[in-house]
Design a protein around this nucleic acid. Structure first.
Lengths: 228, 228
DNA sequence: TTTTCCTTTGCACAACCTTTACACAGCACT
DNA sequence: AGTGCTGTGTAAAGGTTGTGCAAAGGAAAA
């Protein structure tokens, strides 16, 4: 169950050093010293992640990456001698997942490889219940909806954002300036009643309970009453 | 419609600089100046990715990350002044997806954010070669056809792509910009109504049900109504 | 060429965010 | 109680933005 790394690097000494370190860290390592070798090994589909030097004797690592991206989404970490910033940007644009400047600390390389593999594992595990419940309300970010007793509320985009923030802070007071910043994405100016309007509309849609679910804290902001 | 970044950084000047740059690059930005604010906002599930400074006035960015990881797999990029290698390793071990030392080039930050978001999109993409069924619709990638109650729909190439992407994400909202990228293979420019046209045509071919199978999520994109 | 399809253009319309306006509630001070 | 200030509730009007769709223009395939 160990991860298989394909290491494409022309400098024999460095490649063997890294290969040994990666092996010690529990990876199974395939090595290639040229771009073409690397490309055919990667195409073989028998590795989980590729570490790819950019400076190679035959074809550039960037071209190898381009060729790979034309057919797969195999994770690729670029490795390169001191990076001009533009180089890095290009690397990412071509489809790299990470970019590590040489000389690199092997520990950091391993940490980054593991972070990338972990990310992939997370993404592929069905990450459903990101939904949260507050009393009779249920927030479902995937649908961008909030359900009250399993009935979806007909909220506008802004209303959704506002209620979302209030729920995330359920039980404590959210200052108007923060609510404005977080839900509306701009600063609260004097005499701006926009927020009050959205709160008013939200209360209506939530059923105008008494006492209201969204409490007013005069001079401060609003607070969603924590469910009993 | 655009990716939402949560920027947690206490240095007002730097935060505003980055926020402005990210906005210009097409992100929608939410800001927090403290760890606690950042944590509540991230919990609110109203962002796609988090940029997190480690040095914060109240609680350490690492603790914020730990708390987040206890409940979500939200992508997190750490940002820090100290370049100590051990710090980086710790950051990754706690669950960071990337680690950028300050002072960071905003262009590189954006490139890394986009690489991470792209990786997630790739990972979550459904196996496009398997045939799938959604209610009365059946996608058969081998023939590039979609059947409604076993009767093939007369779709054009683009319509097939659009519907297929919507189905692959059935039940959740697909942003217009993503739909454009995945189905049409190019970026969504301002005033480009192409997608709206294809949606309109698709709805017609699907029978113009009411409520429509392809729901409009104003300001965001479209969503295929998950079959009961 | 003809046909099919993709894209652009233009207009109408709907959704919705914001402003305006006024009424009223809370609070401090007389 | 009365007065005035400040902050809030909400209806209605105003303005902006996003969307639906027909029709025409182009581009690509047949």
């Amino acid at each position: 169950m160990q991860n298989r790394v394909l290491l494409v690097e022309d400098d024999d000494e460095l490649r063997q050093l890294l290969a040994r370190y990666l092996t010690n860290q529990g990876f199974s390592v395939r090595e290639a010293a040229t771009g073409n070798d690397g490309l055919s090994l990667a195409r073989g589909q028998n590795c989980d992640i590729v570490v790819l030097d950019i400076m190679l004797p035959d074809i550039s690592g960037l071209d190898v990456l381009r060729a790979l991206r034309a057919e797969t989404h195999l994770p690729v970490v670029l490795l390169t001698a001191r990076g001009d910033e533009t180089d890095r940007i290009v690397g990412f644009e071509v489809g790299a997942d990470d970019y590590i400047p040489k000389p690199c600390n092997p520990r950091e390389l391993v940490a980054r490889l593991q972070a990338l593999l972990r990310r992939i594992a997370w993404d592929q595990a069905v990450d459903l219940d990101a939904s949260r419940t507050y009393g009779d309300l249920r927030v479902e970010p995937a649908h961008r909806r909030i359900y009250q007793d399993d009935v979806p509320l007909e909220l506008t985009a802004t209303e959704y954002e506002v209620l979302q923030v209030l729920l995330a802070h359920a039980g404590s007071v959210v200052r108007k300036t923060d609510l404005m910043q977080w839900a509306l994405g701009r600063r609260l100016e004097a005499h701006d009643r926009t927020l009050d309007m959205h709160i008013s509309n939200l209360r209506k849609k939530l059923g105008n309970d008494d006492p209201p679910r969204i409490e007013t804290v005069r001079g401060l902001g609003y607070s969603y009453r924590v469910p009993a």
